Simulated assay, not measured.
Amino acid sequence: MQCVFISIRCRPGTAYDVADAIALREIHSELYSISGEYDLLVKMYIPEGEDVGKYINANLLDVPGIERTLTTLTFKAF
């Protein structure tokens, strides 16, 4: 499985609704509210053999209220 971190910027006033919608999909390992340029941080494991971009597009980016995302791929745990 490929571990990725996805920073999510939400439309103003929608962060809680976006977080609730993501939580209901049960596609994440961890979900945090964060400070800074983005509102939420999602830790997600992409199943082996899946295309990372297509998986994220199909399972996450259609959540209403998401304005922008930044995906960080991981390579090795220390």
Rank of each mutant, 00 (worst) to 15 (best):
A58W: 04
Y32C: 03
Y38G: 00
D39R: 01
D39L: 01
Y45P: 03
Y16H: 12
A23H: 11
V42G: 00
L41M: 06
L31C: 02
T72R: 09
A21H: 05
G65E: 02
V63G: 00
C10A: 05
L70H: 11
C3V: 15
I27T: 00
D20R: 15
L41N: 02
D17Y: 11
Y32D: 05
M44Y: 04
M44K: 01
V42F: 03
T14Y: 10
Y45C: 12
I66Q: 04
D17Q: 15
R9G: 05
L40W: 07
E67Q: 11
E30P: 02
D62Y: 10
A21V: 07
K76Q: 14
T71K: 11
Y32Q: 07
E50D: 09
A15W: 00
R68W: 10
D51N: 15
A15D: 04
T72E: 03
A77W: 04
C3E: 09
F75N: 13
L24P: 01
R25A: 05
D39F: 00
V18S: 08
E48F: 13
A21M: 13
L73K: 07
N59V: 10
P47F: 11
T14N: 07
E50Y: 07
A21C: 09
I46S: 03
C10D: 00
D62V: 01
E50M: 13
V42A: 02
R11P: 00
I6Y: 05
S33M: 14
R25M: 10
A21F: 05
T74Q: 13
F75V: 15
I34P: 06
D51I: 08
T74R: 14
L73T: 07
A23F: 12
A58E: 15
L31A: 05
G13W: 10
